[in-house]
Amino acid sequence: MDILETHAYDRRQRRNTSCLLFLSLFPFFLSAALYFYWWIPLSEPSLLAAAVKSAPTFSLALLVLSYNGGRSLVGVAGGLFFSVGGDCCLIWDELFLAGMACFAVTHVLYSVSFLSSHYSSHSSSSLSFFFYLLLWLTGGGTYAYLFPHLQKSHDSSILTPAVGVYVLLLVLMVTLALRTRQPLMALGSLSFIVSDFTLAIQHFKVVPNLEHGRLFVMTTYYLSQLLIAVGDVRAGTDEAAEFHKWKRS
């Protein structure tokens, strides 16, 4: 097989993989459409509401697991499954801390994945360090902004440090996602932090509930999970393609 044939074969493989991946995302798009059609946040908390809200994330978890196998359970697939738990818990206000704990585990698992050999390591430039610093300052500033409002909560002794740890894990996850230099991971992680910070300022009454606040939170949340899941699948398929190319050479 000469070089031109090899390149043509690789293009066909990438095109076929992309088409198959797009078709595999149909359950996500369908379940997300059903969620927004029924607008679950405005309904009474129930097991049905929890199932509808978590269905898009659950479909992404199964997708990543089917492509990348069991190893992804200690990585993006595992993080998505914990996100399903977080989605369900946040249906009930009294389970907010449990939901936050689930998403904290999600960020840990995403971070583990971004540090693995699944992603190529890149040296950081001075410009990258500037963005990392800006990201951490934003995270710290957001926590400082939330702090007085956390102190007013009836369970402030638990909530205040818990939110601090959560912000730390979230910003760490985003930093490691940016470090991979994968556009989908970068955009997905940034969308996640925007979603969480928007939710926080509304949940802790920093600002009055925005007119379309819930819509913005859920749109950016589903978008973040979609981009991270697709990015992880593509990283896995690229890794497999490189392995097969090496075997053919």
Rank of each mutant, 00 (worst) to 15 (best):
K152I: 10
L60C: 04
L62H: 00
V74G: 04
R214Y: 10
S157I: 10
V76F: 08
R234T: 10
E239S: 14
D10Y: 12
T198S: 09
L184T: 05
I91E: 13
A8D: 02
H244S: 11
T6A: 00
A144N: 09
V194R: 00
L97G: 04
N16A: 13
R181M: 08
A186V: 14
I228H: 05
I40P: 02
L199I: 09
A104Q: 03
L97P: 04
V84D: 04
L227Y: 02
L30N: 06
S46M: 09
I201K: 06
V233R: 00
P56I: 07
T220K: 02
Y110R: 10
H154W: 12
S123L: 11
Q151N: 03
F22E: 05
W136Q: 12
A32F: 07
A33H: 06
F22W: 12
D93I: 12
F243R: 04
V108Q: 03
Y9P: 00
S117R: 07
W246N: 00
W38K: 12
D10M: 15
K245N: 05
A32W: 10
L65D: 01
S113L: 07
K205M: 03
F192R: 00
R71C: 03
C88W: 09
H7V: 15
V74A: 15
P41R: 07
F36P: 01
M185E: 11
S124I: 05
H244W: 15
A32K: 05
R181F: 14
L169C: 06
T237Q: 14
L42W: 10
C89M: 12
L150F: 10
Y37K: 11
H118Y: 13
V105P: 00
D196G: 01
W92L: 12
V108A: 05
L30H: 13
D93Y: 11
